[in-house]
Amino acid sequence: MYEQLFLLRNYEDRIYYMFLEGIMPGTIHQSQGQEACAVGVLFDVRKEDYMTSTHRPAGHCLAKGVSLESMMCEMFAKANGCCKGKGGAMHTGDISVGAIPAVAITAGGMPVAIGAGLSCKMRKTDNVVICFFGDGASNEGAFHESMNAAAIWNLPVVFVCENNLYGASTHINQVIKIKDLAERAAAYGMPGYVADGNDVLAVNKAANEAIDRARKGKGPTLLELKTYRRCGHSRNDACGYRDKQEEKEWFEKDPVARCKNYILQQQLAAPVELEAIEKKVLQQIDDAVAFAKASPSPEPQDALLHVYA
């Protein structure tokens, strides 16, 4: 788990630095600070389980098993990217590992998760669907329609709301009257739970209960994970709208550092072992960057391919 957390953090950091260098096209919506949500939820899912993601998909995709190289190539807009250079940061995915290409319209992936859930159920599999979305999505009509449908049809969908307190620059208190988004589950007749989204073990435990429930045909769950972005909403966002004290408090709850401290305190691994893991991951990222830089760009006229299957 720590290895994955460390990978997600350093993948995103590396992307950020390369962005600042100006060697990467497009835009980025990063997830530093929210790694425990992706890793904790997806740590025990199967490859055959599906996942829908958002405009902030990198962590979800890495944790679901999309290859680091193919993601890095996509970021560099290369022909061998996971979307062949046609998706970019906001549409990362790889259906062969169950990562449905990310939907970058707020809540737009939620009805898709309903379809994937119906499909799992109709094909009589016991696979489940993990549906990631943010606090902002919970005010969309698509959220309501999807939650209701999953409940009435008893679908194997786990709705995972990463509540990072801000929809772009708008604080959640300005747009939601209730304390916990998990309360909304009651309106649809499904269970809703809150978990500390910066504690990977807490997330994993809560998610596994929901996943187990879904797998056994007992229906959907809404899981609200309280978390916080270390980064801006997108590139060039210095977060001038956030309270500095609030930032300080949350940064002290950093999920990667917390997991590391826990391991060391509990003596689950020696510092030297963690260092070896970190070194390995950093090397993997270096290799992926080198691989992506050396990979071919698509031909301009490749833009005309893949409009239809």
Partner: peptide, 9 residues
């Protein structure tokens, strides 16, 4: 959306 999700899977 459910049609899209079901079709993809």
């Amino acid at each position: 959306g459910a049609a899209v999700g079901a079709a993809m899977t």
